[in-house]
């Protein structure tokens, strides 16, 4: 008895029991599609997974950069007299080895892309107008591409006998 009563002002609830008996072959229950169900009309994807890959890249490149950059600091600033030994001859000695060429190349690319993606996030967070976001990101991408190309060329075209 108590389950059948409904409070005043609230209509009978679908599936509450009061009406279940009335559905049948001649009066089928309405079909409700599950929310977010993919159908033929649903576009395959409304957007790509770019931000997820960016997020993953920050973590993967970050782990590699910890090794590359801390190794770089150890060699340049700590071991063998610290920064006082650094000069053209020192650079020539290191880049004679493909190992350090690849090390520096990987560090350049990963650090530039990691930093550029970080700054892209910061621009998206703080630049409020569409126009300023566009300009700041245009400047960022231009500077990033230029610096990566310049650094790569320097590593691959280095000539110890430039004089």
């Amino acid at each position: 008895m108590s389950t059948e009563t409904t409070a005043t002002g609230i209509g009978p609830v679908e599936g509450s029991g009061a009406h279940e008996g009335s559905y049948g072959v001649d009066n089928p229950a309405p079909f409700i599609e599950p929310p977010r169900k993919r159908t033929k009309k649903t576009p395959r994807s409304t957007r790509g997974n770019f931000e997820m890959y960016g997020w993953l890249f920050m973590r993967l490149s970050g782990i590699v950069l910890v090794v590359l950059v801390l190794g770089h600091l150890l060699i340049q600033l700590v071991l063998d007299g610290g920064v006082s030994k650094v000069g053209f001859a020192f650079v020539a000695g290191r880049w004679a080895s493909p190992w350090w060429q690849v090390w520096d190349l990987a560090m350049l690319w990963l650090a530039m892309l990691h930093g550029a993606n970080g700054l892209r996030t910061i621009i998206n967070d703080y630049a409020e107008s569409v126009k300023s976001r566009l300009w700041l990101k245009g400047l960022l991408y231009t500077a990033t591409v230029w610096t990566i190309v310049l650094g790569t060329l320097v590593i691959f075209t280095f000539d110890p006998n430039i004089r």
Binding site: G87, F88, A89, V91, L108, A111, M112, G115, A143, T147, L150, G151, L153, V154, T157, F158, D159, I162, R163
Partner: peptide, 16 residues
């Protein structure tokens, strides 16, 4: 700093 550092290192292509 990274921008500055790539630029200063690029000077190895100018002269020792």
């Amino acid at each position: 700093f990274l921008f500055v550092h790539v630029l200063d290192t690029a000077l190895v292509r100018v002269s020792p």
